[in-house]
Amino acid sequence: MSIRHGLLALLERGPRYGSQLRTEFESRTGSTWPLNVGQVYTTLNRLERDGMVAQGGQDEAGHALYAITEAGLAELRTWFEKPVDRTSPARDELAIKLAMAVGAPCVDIRDVIQSQRRHTVKAMQDYTRLKAQALVAVESGGARERDDVAWLLVLEQLIFQTEAEARWLDHCEARLIRLSTTMPPASPSASAPASGSASRSASPSAADPAPAPAPAAPNPITTTPASTSGGTR
């Protein structure tokens, strides 16, 4: 996350001192990524070393002010112009977890999906509640309007991101159900839910690629009564 460029962007509006930069950074982003003042000064020192900011006097209260340089402005413009790289994705714990849960003996992948879905949807509920507040703030205008708009954008980014995750989880589940109808059934399980009370059996998932000898064994996903269609929307 680019604190460096964030600070340059704030300095483009005029000289500022360290704790002021921290406050402005946080009100822009709704404290989504809290900074400590130490991080701000470390970053300012590096920017100064690289010739992108320069110390320029003090304000009335005696705070040391920093100003953006020409080199800093050029760097800022380049940052705005250049897309954020998405081609070398960061390691994603959830993707790794689901990849490992396919056929894992100790867990039913559907339980992993559901517990993540619960968490993700709850996060969306909380973001959406904050978003409703941000909308009210933006609509009522006022002095902080620019900060409120920025915060709204950040919140909506979080909502879109969690939404993508929730959709992906639905998709994983639907795909596993579809695959389970074409793959060999899971190892025979006497405890397969006959009339599936919530059908959250701890038996290995039907996507378990382990060859199973009994083709007539009920498939724990597909034999639950009311579930007729294959989970498509």
Binding site: R118, K122, E163, A198, R200, P225, S227
Partner: peptide, 22 residues
């Protein structure tokens, strides 16, 4: 999910039963 997120409570239905909620 984006619309469900406006709710106070989200109930998850599977095969005619409530399996979870948030």
């Amino acid at each position: 999910p984006r619309f469900a997120a406006w709710a106070d409570r989200v109930v998850f239905l599977r095969d005619g039963a409530i399996v979870d909620q948030t």
